[in-house]
Nucleic acid binder design. Structure first.
Lengths: 234, 234
DNA sequence: ACGTTTTCTCAGGAAACGTTCAGCCGGAGC
DNA sequence: GCTCCGGCTGAACGTTTCCTGAGAAAACGT
């Protein structure tokens, strides 16, 4: 029922920066994953052998060995663990080429929603995991993650990338109150320095595009945050 | 059965200000938690190692080391103790960024109800603790903590943040008489300078919004305080 | 290189909220 | 029955929070 109370899968997170490592593992744990972390390639291989994760989140740049090398070792181990790479946005060509061996990749600085979406998509593909639906629905509002498309009352709605990510975050957390800080942390890149004002703007855009008809789904809770839900009368 | 007679969990409270430390630990003990306190980072790590708390309440600003550093040491210890940070409201950007690795955080000056709510929410998430229900019910009055919503006789009721906190405090203490001073201490921030008159106002607001129908749940005990309960065979 | 889309900031205005206070009410005690 | 006292509530105030439109800068597509 509640995404937060179920272990979706076991993940191995590999990054040498403690901040990124903790940011990711805390957030993934909150989303219901079981998480083991490693700080370099040696540790990564060691833990992968021991805990047999369902998926590995792997930074390309590691102090002791290349991320691709680590990925190779993991493949040699069998068990075909899928890999999601983390890479700098300005990666050089040879690195981009290497990414082809990955099941997916995310560029730094990322947003948590981005990473979560990729992880879920890969798990869906490799495990045929139907517990992770690609289509979300609340009332007559529908969102298809794979098709990257949204409908309200059957009519398609055009959203910008940020608007889409925000709506997706709302729909994954239907019925749960989200503070502006929480939204900022999940939908915007982790290096974003701005304040919560931008969240207000985007909520305003979203309402104009997908919440002009009754019943209203996006509700403001003054001094607390926002929540997406059907009004419950019963 | 009584929340006061059961040890809910073992907590470690870390703050260098003795006032805050005592305020928190006394209140948490009264709520059924087992509490150990520490005044700085060194002590915190030491006690965490010895008593293995289920959760750590950690001030970001400590005399010897940064709260995030302490949190890092705690994670290295394994056992994945969740951390609730305490921070000043006007925290600078880099500190806000650090808060993303926290399981939750509360800004100073806080109210005791706020801290308790966050602690319970985190314990619910990390331990799947169903002894700590997110939904409270007294008669036909219902309150959902997560959804931040209230119903009376099935009909949703809109409450301001203070009204919600006050009702929550009443419902957690159903059947127990609460003095105005007690209510002030728990629901309002600890630096609030006003008098108990504001409690009378808010009880009045609450009655108007959630206690207009029979049977009345909020009762005045002249010269003593208030109590929320079903009338017993009156 | 050009126009378009997207993202973010800012500021005005509107609404909700917190707090105080004064006048009223009703029960308790004399 | 009268007086006190504690409690109730409506009004008023300043403050906070939120919404939205306008605009600048960056990214994007052609």
């Amino acid at each position: 029922m509640n995404v937060l109370e179920r272990v979706e899968a076991r993940l191995l997170v590999v990054d040498d920066e403690p901040n990124i490592r903790e940011l990711l593992s805390a957030s993934l744990r909150r989303s219901g994953f079981e998480v083991v972390t490693a700080a370099d390639g040696r540790e990564a291989v060691h833990f992968a052998e021991r805990v047999r994760p369902d998926l590995v989140v792997l930074d390309v740049m590691l102090p002791d060995m290349d991320g691709f090398t680590v990925a190779g070792r993991l493949r040699e181990m069998g068990g075909q663990m899928p890999v999601v790479f983390l890479t700098a946005r300005d990666a050089t060509d040879d690195k981009v080429a290497g990414l082809r061996v990955a099941d997916d990749y995310v560029t730094k600085p990322f947003s948590l929603e981005e990473v979560l979406a990729r992880i879920r998509a890969v798990l869906r593909r490799t495990r045929g995991d139907l517990d992770l639906p690609s289509r979300l629905q609340v009332g007559d509002l529908e969102l298809d993650e794979e098709a990257h498309q949204v409908w309200r009352s059957g009519a398609p709605v055009r959203l910008s990338p940020t608007e889409f990510k925000l709506l997706h975050y709302f729909m994954v957390n239907t019925g749960r109150v989200l503070s502006k800080a929480q939204i900022l942390d999940h939908v915007w890149n982790y290096d974003f320095g701005g304040d919560a004002g931008v969240v207000e703007s985007y909520v305003s855009y979203l309402r104009r595009k997908v919440d002009i008809t009754e019943p209203r789904l996006i509700h403001t809770l003054r001094g607390v945050g926002y929540v997406l839900r059907l009004p419950r009368g019963d």
